[in-house]
Amino acid sequence: MAISEEQLRRMAQQLPDVSRDPQAVRTRVEAMEKVLERAFVIPGIKQPVGLDALVGMIPVVGDIVTAIMGAYIVWEARNLGMSKWQITRMAANVGIDTALGAIPLAGDVFDFFWRSNTRNLRIIRKHLDKHHPGTRTIEG
């Protein structure tokens, strides 16, 4: 059964926004950073922690999974047309997080404090605020 162009267009409109629109990119990157770095709060010490630190405790596989998720943020930055220098800094943040996070025990502690995705979000926000000021959001 063939799908007409009109049916395909309607189906595409129903899909979530995966465009390169700066506002859509900001929303996706902020959501990914929250999941990776601040999804939960540890009771007692009130320290936010995300999947990066939790999944990173699983040897090898956890570090690979969180590296791929962190690389997604860098990919989104590339789609925004950010400079090679910014992309390199962001890739280095993910690389440091992955390399040092892979060290048993010490890497888990490092993951708890080194928030590469938060650093990368800061770089993206600075770029968006300068080049696409209409995407700014009020943080509370």
Rank of each mutant, 00 (worst) to 15 (best):
D97V: 06
L100K: 04
F113K: 10
R119E: 10
W114F: 15
T118G: 14
A92I: 14
S116T: 05
T118W: 08
L105C: 14
P104F: 05
N117E: 09
S116V: 00
T118A: 15
N93D: 06
A106Q: 12
D97W: 02
F110W: 11
G95I: 05
T98Y: 02
R115E: 06
T118F: 13
L105A: 15
A99Y: 01
A99V: 12
A99C: 03
S116R: 01
N93E: 02
R122P: 12
D108R: 11
W114H: 10
G101K: 04
I123C: 05
A99R: 00
V94W: 00
G95K: 03
R122C: 13
R115W: 05
V109G: 07
L121M: 07
P104H: 02
A91S: 14
P104S: 02
A99I: 11
I96A: 04
R115L: 13
V109K: 08
T98W: 00
N117G: 07
L100P: 04
D97K: 06
G95V: 04
L100Q: 03
L105V: 15
F112P: 00
R122E: 15
D108A: 13
L105G: 13
R119H: 09
G107E: 02
D111E: 11
V109E: 11
G101W: 02
V109R: 07
R115Q: 13
L105Y: 15
F112L: 09
V109L: 11
R115M: 11
G95P: 01
F112R: 03
V109Y: 11
I103F: 08
D111S: 07
W114R: 07
N117A: 08
W114I: 08
N117W: 00
A106T: 14
G95W: 02
T98N: 03
L100H: 05
P104R: 03
N120P: 11
G95Q: 02
D108H: 14
G95F: 01
G107I: 00
A99W: 03
I103R: 09
A106H: 12
I96K: 03
A102K: 09
R122L: 14
A102V: 11
G107V: 01
I103G: 06
I96N: 00
T118R: 11
F110A: 06
T118I: 10
L121G: 03
A99G: 09
W114P: 05
A91T: 14
L121W: 02
N117S: 09
R115F: 08
A99E: 04
F112H: 02
G95T: 09
N93C: 03
A91Y: 09
I103Y: 10
N117V: 06
D97A: 13
R122A: 15
W114G: 07
